[in-house]
Design a protein around this nucleic acid. Structure first.
Length: 278
DNA sequence: AAAGCACCCTGTACGC
DNA sequence: TGCGTACAGGGTGCTT
């Protein structure tokens, strides 16, 4: 499931190979992948455009075009943006294909059809709703302390809320909370300043490490880099997906609980439950 | 503000 | 074999 490190990895791949490319034609196989615009408008407005920049904001891929428009791509669960040579077979899940003047093509594949493409003059309409970038300079420990202090919801749900903090998903929230030894059900404003600092460091170090490995490709193979390669961070996941296995820190068995309808992995010893404490 | 749920989808894993 | 069902997940939108 693409989260910040996976999206960053895709963006870096596209930045290397897509900038300067001109779109010669667009084919849409699943119209609902396109949000806001009719497929005909989407095609008409993209044909002939040249890619100027590729950026990331949260889990959004932001492709800046020569006419000032932005193509926003959200991969959701199973989306992939693949840059390929033109004579290349589609998979069963190809939803949109951008043919490029160089002869290559950019293909949007998405098994579960949750991904979305938005072409807009005002990317801010979408991106300004997001919380701070966890790896950005503006996201200081001091700011995080203030953010946490005024919220009393469950810390895990809060970290997953893209308006609170942009880019985290279920995998990295699980890892960061385990690393910081904080139970996911703890109210955000119940964390000590030491715990907030540990969580801040855990979030950032986990994201940096995952980006360094090119993201996480689980056994289902859902995530692919822009060149089709897998990410290598899965072997470094210490809690996520490890139900019943010994905690790498203390040896207790990792448990799987549900928080906000999401699978959640905790070490009962390292991450004491708030209910058990009170 | 917080929490729950239905929805959007489909592959996988299960029970019978 | 094969059918039916539950589940997984990010985000949106609605209700409580």
């Amino acid at each position: 499931m693409p989260e910040l490190p996976e999206v960053e990895t895709v963006v870096r791949g596209l930045r290397r190979c897509l900038i300067g490319e001109t779109i010669s034609s667009v084919t849409i196989y699943w119209a609902r992948s396109i949000a806001r615009l009719d497929p005909e408008q989407f095609i008409a407005q993209l044909t002939g455009r040249t890619v100027r920049k590729v950026d990331r904001r949260g889990k959004w891929i932001v492709v800046r075009l020569d006419d000032g428009q932005g193509l926003l791509v959200h991969l959701r669960m199973t989306g992939q943006l693949l840059l390929e040579p033109a004579p290349c077979p589609d998979d069963d899940y190809t939803r949109v294909v951008f043919n490029l003047k160089s002869g290559r093509r950019l293909r949007f594949s998405d098994m579960r059809k949750f991904g979305r493409l938005i072409l807009t003059d005002n990317p801010g309409d979408v991106l300004d709703e997001l919380g701070p970038e966890p790896l950005g300079e503006a996201f200081t420990l001091e700011r995080f302390e203030h953010m946490m202090a005024e919220r009393r919801g469950r810390v895990k749900s809060l970290l997953l809320d893209q308006r609170f903090l942009a880019g985290l998903g279920n995998i990295y929230v699980n890892e960061a909370l385990w690393k910081a030894r904080i139970h996911p059900l703890r109210p955000a404003n119940s964390l000590s300043s030491g715990e907030v600092a540990a969580l801040y460091r855990a979030v950032r170090s986990t994201l940096h490490a995952a980006i360094g490995e090119g993201g996480t490709t689980l056994e289902n193979g859902n995530f692919r880099q822009a060149d089709g390669a897998a990410g290598e961070f899965a072997s470094q996941l210490l809690a996520y997906g490890h139900e019943g296995e010994p905690c790498p820190c203390c040896g207790a068995r990792i448990e799987r609980i549900t928080v906000g309808q999401r699978g959640t992995y905790v070490c009962p010893a390292c991450q004491p439950s708030p209910a058990a404490e009170s």
